Simulated scan of single mutants.
Amino acid sequence: MKTPKRIQPLVEEGLIDEVMRQLMSGKEATVYVVRSGDDIRCAKVYKEANERSFHQAVAYQEGRRVKNSRQARAMEKGTRYGRKMAEQVWQNAEVDALYRLAAAGVRVPRPYICHEGVLLMELVTGADGNAAPRLNDVELDRERALAYHAALLREVVLMLCAGVIHGDLSEYNILVDAHGPVIIDLPQAVDAAGSSVAASMLERDVTNLANFFGAFAPELQGSRYGAEIWMLYEAGLLTPDTPLTGVVAAPEGPADVGAVIHEIALARFEEEERERHQLAAQGWA
């Protein structure tokens, strides 16, 4: 196919030899299957801010900083230069998270390079050698649902031990290769130590998993793995091998009204994102 304009610089640099086909187009990027020498990879071309349906919510930006004070001021003022810097921070967040998580043993695509809004990374393939399907498109039974749920909980724990929370985890941004689930789409990754809503984001991610797999394994519905994981993390007791029960004692004392309101706002945002994911799924090829 014709080389997209945004990918052309990587072709000129010899990083990509051929653009083979478009793989998918989503809310934040378009992904292409490309050839680099003898390797088949994928190139994720981030959409411009005015073209994305996923907006950089404050909850996701919190904790992200730039070292250059001029850039930081420009970003705060929202100048043209500042918006450009904000875009770079947004895109680099995924690259940084991928390197960080891969080093921690989390099952994510291996990144190679990010150049001017194009991320070149590993193409995750299924058992048939073709591009791996999303979890939403995989046939599940109770046994497989429980196995995948347990595997993904371990990935969530590994991520948190590395200081990262996905922030938008669902059946739409998990691929399934020959060895199980692989987590993708991390530009909205949350820094566990630098975000005031980290606990809420983590619990939402884990609840999304329970809700999805609960359709095949009803015993997962109502589990509280997210709250348990965060409680262990805060207490400094969380390790990749920490056994989890999914049960947390009910809190004593008056309810935190502010926290409840915040949870409602997050739930509303989550539903809007789920609808966008469903629309984006129609573009998966």
Rank of each mutant, 00 (worst) to 15 (best):
I7F: 03
I7E: 03
P9Y: 02
E12K: 14
G14T: 05
D17V: 03
E18I: 00
E18A: 03
S25C: 06
V31A: 04
R35V: 02
D38M: 08
I40C: 08
A43D: 00
V45M: 04
Y46T: 06
A49R: 07
Q56I: 09
A57K: 04
V58K: 12
N68E: 12
N68Q: 10
N68K: 09
R70I: 14
Q71F: 12
E76N: 00
E76H: 02
G78H: 04
R83C: 04
K84D: 13
E87M: 09
N92K: 05
A93F: 00
A93K: 01
E94K: 10
L98Q: 02
R100C: 05
L101Q: 07
L101K: 07
V106W: 02
V106E: 06
R107L: 14
P109N: 07
P109A: 11
P109D: 07
R110K: 15
Y112P: 02
I113V: 15
I113F: 14
G117V: 12
V118E: 01
L119M: 02
G126V: 02
L135P: 03
N136D: 12
E139R: 06
R142Y: 07
R144E: 02
L152C: 13
L153Y: 02
I165V: 09
Y172C: 08
N173L: 15
I174C: 11
D177A: 06
L186E: 09
A189E: 03
D191Y: 02
D191P: 02
A199G: 07
L202P: 07
D205V: 07
N211C: 13
A215R: 12
A217N: 11
L220M: 03
S223F: 01
G226N: 07
G226Q: 07
E228K: 13
W230H: 00
D241Y: 09
T245M: 09
T245Q: 13
G246V: 06
V248S: 12
E252F: 10
P254L: 11
D256A: 05
V257K: 14
G258A: 05
R268C: 08
E270A: 14
E271F: 15
E272Q: 09
E275V: 12
W284H: 04
W284C: 02
